[in-house]
Amino acid sequence: HMTFVALYDYVASGETDLSFKKGERLQIVNNTEGDWWLAHSLTTGRTGYIPSNYVAPSD
């Protein structure tokens, strides 16, 4: 899985979304859904959809 880092805080707007904090590391499970990607937080262990423009590839 690709690892990304959150650029901003995001508060989930629905049950399927994943809240995260700036700097949180996320594994992308599925990024074929356009602007919303299914991600797994390496910080909280939770999985949900995130806005793709809130994250950047982590080196």
Rank of each mutant, 00 (worst) to 15 (best):
Leu38Asn: 02
His1Gln: 13
Leu38Arg: 03
Thr47Cys: 12
Thr32Ser: 13
Val29Asp: 05
Val29Cys: 14
Phe20Glu: 00
Ser52Trp: 08
Met2Arg: 14
Leu38Tyr: 11
Pro51Arg: 05
Ile50Ala: 02
Thr43Ala: 12
Lys22Trp: 03
Phe20Trp: 01
Tyr54Ala: 14
Gly34Thr: 14
Thr43Lys: 11
Leu38Lys: 04
Phe20Tyr: 01
Tyr10His: 05
Thr32Ala: 12
Thr43Ser: 12
Asn30Tyr: 08
Arg25Glu: 10
Ala6Thr: 07
Gly45His: 15
Val11Tyr: 09
Thr16Trp: 15
Pro57Asp: 06
Val5Gln: 06
Tyr8Thr: 06
Leu18Arg: 01
Gly34Ile: 11
Glu24Asp: 12
Asp59Gln: 11
Lys22Val: 08
Ser13Arg: 14
Leu42Pro: 09
Asp59Glu: 14
His1Gly: 14
His1Ile: 12
Asp35Ile: 09
Gly34Phe: 09
Asn53Gln: 11
Tyr49Gln: 05
Ala39Leu: 01
Ser58Leu: 15
Glu33Tyr: 12
Asp17Ala: 07
Val5Cys: 06
Gly14Thr: 13
Thr47Ser: 11
Lys21Asn: 09
Ala12Gln: 05
Tyr49Thr: 05
Phe4Asn: 02
Asn30Thr: 08
Gln27Asp: 06
Gln27Gly: 05
Ala39Glu: 00
Glu24Ile: 00
Ser13Cys: 15
His1Asn: 14
Leu42Val: 08
Ala39Trp: 01
Val5His: 05
Lys21Trp: 05
Thr32Cys: 13
Glu24Pro: 00
Ile50Tyr: 00
Thr44His: 03
Gly48Leu: 02
Asp35Gly: 10
Leu7Glu: 05
Arg46Ala: 11
Leu42Gln: 07
Thr43Asp: 15
Ile50Gln: 00
Thr43Val: 13
Gly34Arg: 12
Glu33Asp: 14
Gly23Phe: 04
Arg25Pro: 07
Ala39Tyr: 01
Ile50His: 00
Val11Asp: 11
Val55Thr: 04
Phe20Asn: 00
Val29Pro: 05
Ser52Tyr: 08
Asn53Pro: 06
Pro51Lys: 05
Trp37Ala: 03
Ser41Trp: 00
Val11Ala: 10
Asn53Ala: 14
Tyr8Ala: 10
Asp17Gly: 13
Ser52Arg: 11
Lys21Cys: 11
Ala56Ser: 10
Glu33Cys: 14
Ser19Phe: 05
Arg25Gln: 11
Lys22Asn: 03
Leu7Gln: 06
Leu18Phe: 08
Asp35Lys: 10
Gly14Val: 10
Asn53Cys: 12
His40Gln: 13
Val55Ala: 05
Ala39Met: 10
Asp9Asn: 06
His40Cys: 13
Pro51Met: 04
Ile28Phe: 03
Asn31Val: 12
Ser52Ala: 14
Leu7Gly: 03
Phe4Tyr: 15
Val55Cys: 05
Val5Gly: 01
Leu42Tyr: 08
Thr3Val: 15
Gln27His: 15
Leu26His: 00
His1Arg: 09
His1Tyr: 13
Pro57Tyr: 08
Tyr10Arg: 05
Asp17Phe: 13
Tyr8Ile: 07
Glu15Pro: 15
Arg25Phe: 15
Ser13Asn: 11
Phe20His: 01
Asn30Pro: 05
Ala12Trp: 02
Thr32Val: 09
Lys21Gly: 06
Lys21Leu: 10
Gly45Pro: 01
Asn30Asp: 15
Tyr8Gln: 10
Thr47Phe: 09
Leu7Cys: 08
Tyr10Lys: 03
Gly48Pro: 00
Val11Cys: 12
Leu7Val: 07
Phe20Ala: 02
Val11Gln: 12
Pro51Trp: 04
Leu42Asn: 05
Pro51Gln: 05
Asn30Glu: 11
Asp17Asn: 09
Tyr54Thr: 06
Glu33Met: 14
Glu15Cys: 11
Glu33Ala: 13
Tyr49Glu: 03
Asp59Lys: 11
Asp9Trp: 01
Glu33Asn: 15
Arg46Pro: 00
His40Ser: 09
Tyr8Glu: 09
Ala12Tyr: 02
Asp17Glu: 15
Gly34Glu: 11
Val55Pro: 02
His40Arg: 15
Thr44Gln: 06
Val29Leu: 15
Ile28His: 01
Tyr10Gln: 01
Val5Thr: 10
His40Glu: 10
Lys22Tyr: 04
Thr43Trp: 09
Thr16Gly: 14
Val11Trp: 10
Asp9Tyr: 03
Thr32Ile: 11
Leu26Lys: 00
Leu7Ala: 04
Asp17Trp: 07
Ile50Ser: 00
Leu7Trp: 03
Asp35Ser: 11
Leu42Asp: 05
Asp59Ala: 13
His40Phe: 14
Ser58Gln: 13
Asn31Gly: 14
Leu26Val: 04
Ala6Lys: 00
Val5Trp: 05
Asn31Arg: 14
Thr3Asn: 07
Arg25Asn: 08
Leu26Cys: 01
Glu15Phe: 08
Ile28Trp: 02
Pro57Arg: 08
Ser58Glu: 15
Val55Met: 06
Asn53Val: 09
Ser58Cys: 15
Glu24Thr: 02
Ile28Val: 10
Asp59His: 15
Met2Asp: 11
Ala6Leu: 03
Leu38Asp: 01
Asp17Cys: 10
Ala56Ile: 14
Thr44Asp: 04
Thr44Trp: 01
Leu26Ala: 00
Lys22Pro: 02
Ile28Ala: 08
Ser58Val: 15
Asn31Asp: 13
Thr32Lys: 11
Leu38Gln: 04
Lys21Ser: 11
Asn31Ser: 13
Trp37Ser: 03
Leu38His: 04
Ile28Pro: 10
Ala6Arg: 00
Trp36Asn: 05
Ser19Trp: 03
Asp17Pro: 02
Glu15Leu: 13
Gly45Tyr: 05
Ala6Met: 06
Ser52Pro: 08
Arg46Leu: 14
Glu33Leu: 14
Tyr8Arg: 09
Trp36Gly: 02
Gly34Asn: 12
Ser13Leu: 13
Trp36Met: 10
Val55Glu: 01
Pro57Thr: 08
Tyr10Thr: 01
Pro57Val: 10
Thr16Gln: 14
Leu18Glu: 02
Arg25Ala: 09
Trp37Val: 08
Ile50Lys: 00
Glu33Phe: 13
Arg25Ser: 08
Asp35Gln: 11
Ser41Arg: 02
Trp36Thr: 06
Gly48Gln: 01
Asn31Pro: 12
Leu18His: 02
Leu7Tyr: 03
Trp37Tyr: 06
Ala12Thr: 04
Asn53Lys: 12
Lys21Val: 11
Val55Ile: 07
Tyr49Asp: 02
Asp59Met: 12
His1Leu: 12
Thr16Val: 11
Val55Asn: 03
Leu18Lys: 01
